[in-house]
Amino acid sequence: MQSRPAPKDEPAEAYAAALRLLARREHSGVELRRKLHQRGFTEASIGPSLEQLCAAGYLSDARFAGSLVRHRAAQGYGDLRLRAELAQHGIDHAIVEQALEALDADWCERALAQARRHFGEPPATAGARARVLRHLAQRGFASSVARAALAEWCKSEQ
């Protein structure tokens, strides 16, 4: 049985650990706090460290949200998936909306591109159309957007 290490109560150590994590990739404040807790730091050392990182501009939920939105949208995910993922990272609703607005995406066009990339050719049967709609829904596109993209795809191939 493993014993738990003694809690780390040194803000400078927490700051250094957080900085190492941020050097690898952007993190949300909630995610960074969780990771520091997992590494044995106490809240008394984490709080001041995160405040210092924010003040220095190294930690930004807005920058994290923008980065995640651009990356996931490029992977073919829809706005519903992006909103849910950002909420899991503890990002404020207003910041989520700003990040999505800054992306300035045509979600119907992105859904159409995702369907074409995944399926190759437009669906010929009702069952195939249902598979396309399910796929787009699983990728986080709203059903109205998925239906519009499917209609556009079928219309453009006729």
Rank of each mutant, 00 (worst) to 15 (best):
A17D: 04
A18H: 00
A18W: 00
L19K: 06
L19Y: 05
R20Y: 02
R20P: 09
L21G: 07
L22I: 07
A23N: 13
A23Q: 15
R24P: 01
R25D: 14
R25N: 12
R25E: 12
H27W: 14
V30A: 15
V30K: 06
V30Q: 15
E31R: 11
E31F: 10
L36P: 08
H37A: 15
H37Y: 15
H37K: 15
Q38M: 10
R39A: 12
R39W: 01
G40E: 04
S45C: 05
I46H: 02
G47I: 11
G47L: 11
G47E: 11
P48Q: 11
S49H: 07
S49A: 15
L50D: 07
L50S: 10
L50F: 06
E51K: 11
E51S: 14
L53S: 03
A55N: 11
A56N: 06
Y58S: 11
L59C: 11
S60N: 06
S60Y: 04
A62M: 08
A62P: 02
A62S: 10
A65F: 03
A65I: 02
S67F: 11
L68R: 10
V69I: 10
H71I: 08
H71R: 13
R72N: 06
A73I: 03
A74V: 02
A74T: 01
Q75L: 15
G76R: 03
G76M: 03
Y77G: 01
G78S: 04
G78N: 02
D79V: 10
R81A: 15
R83Y: 02
R83P: 03
A84G: 10
E85L: 15
A87H: 03
A87Q: 10
Q88G: 13
H89W: 12
G90N: 09
G90A: 04
G90W: 02
D92I: 05
I95N: 00
E97L: 07
E97Q: 13
E97T: 14
Q98E: 15
Q98G: 06
L103C: 08
D104A: 12
A105D: 02
